[in-house]
């Protein structure tokens, strides 16, 4: 079971490290990361394994969103099922 974590915002030092640390707090293992910088905007998509997640998926999603808000980043956490069902037959 995986969570898709998207992070968008102004590029600053240590975004990847901070988001990863937050994921580790919830026992989420980062399986894949794709990252680009577009005209100074930081865009990252992470796939996190949530099988041994500490707490509920909703709490994890809220925590990352709030964490993003505090750093002026837009962080979305969504279950992989939504992408698989929408884009795969």
């Amino acid at each position: 079971m995986k969570a898709v974590i998207t992070v968008v915002g102004k590029d600053t030092v240590g975004i990847l490290a901070k988001v990863s640390t937050k994921c580790a707090e919830y026992n989420v293992n980062i399986a894949e990361v794709s990252q680009t910088i577009l005209q100074g905007m930081f865009c990252m998509i992470m796939l996190g394994e949530v099988d041994s997640l500490q707490g509920s998926f909703g709490d994890f999603a809220d925590a990352l969103r709030d964490f993003g808000d505090s750093m002026n980043l837009k962080i979305n956490v969504m279950h992989e099922d939504i992408f698989n069902s929408m884009h795969k037959i």
Partner: peptide, 12 residues
């Protein structure tokens, strides 16, 4: 991995 384009499309 799930296609990046699909992820961004859904979020949009």
């Amino acid at each position: 991995m799930i296609d990046t384009k699909d992820i961004l499309e859904t979020i949009r």
